[in-house]
Amino acid sequence: MVRVQQAPFDLNALYHSLSAERTDIGAVASFVGRVRDFNEQPDVEALTLEHYPGMTEAVLTRIVEQAEQRWSLANVIVVHRVGRLTPGDDIVVVLVASAHRHAAFEACEFIMDLLKTQAPFWKKEHTRQGDYWVSERHSDKEARQRWEQG
């Protein structure tokens, strides 16, 4: 399941919907991305997440499908928030369920690495010194390229 929403998500509820009544699932890996109070500049007071409605969901769905082709997965949930968020808020959650842990760990990281470089989200950070659009990171590009070689 892929979802883009403004509202906060309930990790526990998502975990239940992922694995309830599924006795074939032996492992669940999860990743939660949060808003930091420092990034390119200190004193980040808030950030605004913009996205491309329609394309975002399509890209996330495609990333999940690619993960499902690469590993044997039982279920995947990706929820990404948009709008104004403040430090400590959750931004994104990826939950991956599989029979064994290696597939769950790897697929979870794979989904995040592709999301970071392909899903059309943009962050604008609001600091005491002013607002700025966050730049892409070279390390994110390298993290994605790792999967292309493997």
Partner: peptide
Amino acid sequence: VAFFPPVTGG
């Protein structure tokens, strides 16, 4: 057609 800067989500 959409034009946009590099993405920075997650």
